[in-house]
Amino acid sequence: MNNKRTSRSQAPVIPQGEVIGEFKTYAEASDLVNLLIEKQFPGGQIAIVGKDLRTVERVRGKLSNARVALGGATTGSWLGLIWGLIFGTNPEAVTTQDAFAPVISAVFIGAGVGMLINILRFAFSKNKRSFISQSTVVASKYQVQVPRNLADQAATILASKTLE
C-alpha cells in the first residue's frame, strides 16, 4: 500500500520562501507570475500570498417582492423549457405549432411555479434582508514568493526584465 500523499491531498499551508515582489493588486502580482512562467521558471514553485485579508460585501441592489418573483419566474421558465423539451415534444404532430405547444405550456407553468416558490421562500425566511449583496475576500497587498533555492533564478529574470 502506497502512503505517499500527493499535493492535492495535503492540508493547505502558508508557503515559505523569498518574497520577490509585493503589489497592491492581484493583477499586478499575476503579471509577475506570468513573466516568470514565460521565462521558463517552474510555475508550481510560485505562490501569490494575500496579506491582511478582509471580507468585502458589495450591495448590488434592493430586494423586493417583484425582484424575487422575477428571479423565480426566470429560473422556473428555464426548468420548464428543459422539462418541455425532454418530455413534451411530439414528433408525430401535424404542424410545428402542435409539436411545441406542450413546450410553451411547460415554460409558462414552470415560470408560475418558480415565482410562487420564490415568493413563499422569501416571505418565510428568517434572515430577511432588503438588499442583494455579493461577498468577496480581498487583501491589502499581494506577495509573490518562490522557494529560497530558486530566488536567485527569479531575481535574474526580474533583472533582465528591468533592462528591457
Rank of each mutant, 00 (worst) to 15 (best):
G17E: 01
E18V: 08
E18T: 05
E18Q: 15
V19E: 12
V19C: 11
I20P: 00
I20D: 00
G21Q: 13
T25Q: 06
A27N: 00
A29L: 03
A29T: 04
A29Y: 06
S30D: 05
D31E: 15
D31Q: 15
V33R: 13
V33F: 10
N34R: 15
N34L: 06
N34T: 10
L35W: 14
L36K: 08
L36S: 03
E38N: 07
K39T: 06
A47W: 10
I48T: 01
K51M: 01
K51L: 03
D52T: 03
D52I: 03
R54N: 11
R54C: 09
T55D: 11
T55V: 09
V56K: 14
R58H: 11
V59G: 05
R60A: 11
G61C: 12
G61N: 09
K62L: 05
S64I: 01
A66M: 13
V68W: 01
V68H: 02
A69T: 02
A69N: 05
G71S: 12
G72M: 01
G72R: 04
G72F: 02
G72P: 02
G72N: 00
G72D: 01
A73W: 05
T74Y: 13
T74N: 15
T74F: 15
G76Y: 05
G76E: 09
G76W: 01
G76P: 01
G76T: 01
S77M: 00
W78G: 14
W78D: 02
G80W: 04
I82N: 09
W83S: 07
W83H: 09
G84S: 04
L85G: 12
L85F: 11
I86S: 10
I86T: 09
I86C: 09
G88V: 03
T89W: 15
T89H: 15
P91Y: 08
P91W: 14
P91H: 11
E92T: 15
V94D: 14
T95M: 02
T95L: 05
T96G: 15
Q97G: 11
D98W: 02
D98P: 02
D98N: 12
F100Q: 08
A101G: 14
A101Q: 11
V103C: 04
I104Y: 10
V107M: 08
F108N: 10
I109N: 09
I109C: 13
G110F: 00
G110E: 03
G112I: 03
G114S: 04
G114Q: 06
I117T: 10
I117S: 07
I117Y: 01
N118M: 11
I119M: 14
R121T: 04
R121I: 04
R121L: 08
F122E: 12
A123P: 09
A123V: 04
F124P: 10
F124Q: 14
N127M: 06
N127S: 07
R129N: 10
R129D: 00
S130P: 04
S130I: 10
F131I: 06
F131W: 03
S133T: 11
Q134W: 00
Q134Y: 04
T136K: 12
T136D: 14
T136I: 11
V137S: 01
V138G: 05
A139T: 04
S140N: 07
S140P: 00
Y142M: 05
Q143C: 07
V144P: 01
V144G: 08
Q145I: 09
Q145A: 14
R148A: 08
R148L: 08
N149A: 10
N149C: 07
N149E: 13
N149Q: 10
L150S: 00
